[in-house]
């Protein structure tokens, strides 16, 4: 009986092994291995411009990365970008989802229009926004001058503050439809009985929103928060196309900064150290979200 039991258990393990093999293989090759390699590189001298210097580097890459002025600037820029874009994207997405959840004439067309930016490749959208902001022919300058807001065309992307703000607007435009869709799906799953019960209890509109809608949306919002925070930290394409980190590194957030270390300076070790730092920070943020929102494990259905 014991051997039969073992045999059956062995069959079960084999079955699980075979069915999870494709997914695990992909995760191993494209996620675990690169992370392990980055971790190894971050503690190694691995600089393509200095191939003679190899071996264990200890914390040299981490210390070097943290001490540079460029890193400090990129962290500051990242904090501004992540916080501002988070609130803008989530606010837009929540507002849009609430609007699209209402029943009125033309809502289906509005749904398509709101989701349209999502269908446009980010690089194409970035180029479009770059043209909108253009200092010589941009429609933003045209509109503001026509309205009498500015006396003449401005080179918006050469000034640190407008450049960052305009970059965030462009990014949010491309980004908010995804979150809108997620929140809208959550809203459409709220049982009507809950609202009816709230009305019977005398709850007004804001109370119904706070006590029913938001509570029901909590798991979905958690996903949106985590997703948008990570997107904000790792965004690259919009920056590459619209500002290239300019003016003078004012918009060079951490992902762009890492890209530069790897693909311009060819310093794999230091770029890996920076990537690991970002990975750890992202992990901490995700953990904090789960803790802060007091959701032990993710459950999309109410009990």
């Amino acid at each position: 009986m014991v051997s039969a039991s073992r045999r059956l258990r062995g069959r079960g393990a084999l079955f699980i092994f075979l069915t999870t093999l494709p997914a695990l293989a992909i995760i191993t090759i494209f996620t675990l291995y690169p992370i392990a390699f980055a971790l190894w590189s971050s503690f190694s001298f691995y600089d393509l411009t200095n191939p003679e210097k190899t071996g264990f580097a200890g914390i040299t890459n981490y210390a070097g990365a943290l001490q540079t002025t460029g890193f400090q600037h990129s962290v500051e820029a990242s904090v501004v970008f992540v916080i501002a874009s988070f609130f803008l994207v989530v606010g837009l997405a929540l507002g849009s989802a609430l609007l699209l959840n209402e029943k009125f004439r033309g809502v289906k067309y509005l749904q398509v229009i709101v989701l349209l930016p999502w269908a446009i490749p980010i690089v194409v959208a970035g180029l479009m926004w770059r043209w909108i902001y253009d200092s010589n022919y941009g429609i933003l300058n045209f509109a503001l001058q026509s309205l009498g807001v500015i006396p003449s065309y401005q080179a918006w992307l050469t000034q640190a503050n407008p450049a960052m703000a305009l970059l965030i607007v462009a990014y949010a435009w491309s980004e908010f439809p995804v979150s809108t869709l997620l929140i809208l799906a959550g809203l459409q799953s709220v049982p009507k009985e809950l609202y009816e019960a709230a009305v019977v209890d005398g709850a007004r509109a804001f109370a119904r929103f706070r006590r029913v809608t938001l509570v029901w949306l909590k798991p979905v919002l958690l996903i949106v928060f985590v997703y948008e925070t990570l997107r904000g930290i790792t965004v690259f394409d919009s920056i590459y196309v619209i500002t290239k980190g300019q003016p003078a590194d004012a918009t060079a957030i951490i992902s762009y900064y890492i890209y530069r270390y790897l693909f311009t300076f060819y310093d794999v070790g230091r770029a890996s150290a920076l990537s690991i730092i970002v990975l750890v920070v992202s992990g901490v943020l995700i953990y904090a979200y789960f803790k802060f929102l007091r959701i032990g494990s993710l459950e999309l259905r109410a009990r």
């Binding site: 460029g70 290239k244 980190g245 003016p247 003078a248 590194d249 060079a252 530069r260 311009t264 300076f265």
Partner: peptide, 12 residues
């Protein structure tokens, strides 16, 4: 071709 300490400083 991109940004680095010298280019960033001169641009600023």
């Amino acid at each position: 071709f991109v940004q680095g300490p010298a280019r960033t400083t001169i641009t600023a």
